[in-house]
Design a protein around this nucleic acid. Structure first.
Lengths: 115, 115
DNA sequence: CCACCTATATCGACCATCGATATACTGATC
DNA sequence: GATCAGTATATCGATGGTCGATATAGGTGG
């Protein structure tokens, strides 16, 4: 029973958008499985987090949804990236990279570099 | 008037611990300036965030503090890493690296890699 | 003496995420 | 044909980290 970590703060919307970009239109449950899979089963998305995020992204206009039927013949809501969503994905990607670079700087900086 | 970004969620404790490791014992105000400096003046630490974090770290035993006088002859509380704090720094560093690797995977993965 | 910088501190608010809980339908197993 | 596991959506209260505003006080330089 391996324990899977929580999603790091502030990265879930980014991962959802990226997953939709990668895979095309998907339903929420599928997105959460994909995220688990891409992470090498290292993280699990809480359902109580996922659906509010999808709702919020839709309200922002980043994604649109409509009801459909899965390959398993189950009713599900399919989400698709909009042009706004692609733009937002770009922005959030850049922000993440800056954040990562910033934190990384703390690991490489030496005391002598600082006055 | 350049605007500085907020500290990314979940990274402040790590940056505080790392700064104390780098610089040795420091007071809170100094820590916040260092963080700003190391980030290339790209981020600013909110005082209303910093002191609660220091308090929490002290309660966890990661740091200890005592009152002293700065080189400017001002009263200040100096914080120092404990052995527990060094351990915690190691753990949080590893966690951050894993997080960064995980998020990074979303940018390199291709649809064909996924079944 | 006044303005600015240093320095610590608290408070309410906000927002992302968690954990628990509920519902319903499908396919497989006994 | 009953039961169970897996699929799928959804809501709710709680938690935790950070923000923004606010308060206090002492030292330094103009």
């Amino acid at each position: 029973m391996k324990e899977r970590a929580d999603v790091p703060q502030g990265t879930l919307a980014l991962m959802v958008l990226k997953t939709l970009e990668l895979m095309g239109p998907m339903h929420g449950y599928g997105v959460s499985r994909r995220i688990g899979q891409i992470s090498g089963d290292l993280l699990a998305v809480n359902q109580g987090t996922l659906y509010p995020v999808l709702l919020k992204l839709e309200q922002e206009g980043a994604i649109v949804s409509d009801w459909g039927v899965t390959e398993n013949n189950r009713r599900a809501r399919f989400y698709e990236l909009t042009r706004v969503g692609r733009k937002q994905l770009e922005v959030e990607t850049r922000q993440w990279e800056q954040t990562a670079a910033l934190v990384g700087r703390f690991f490489t900086v030496k005391a002598e570099d600082l006055t």
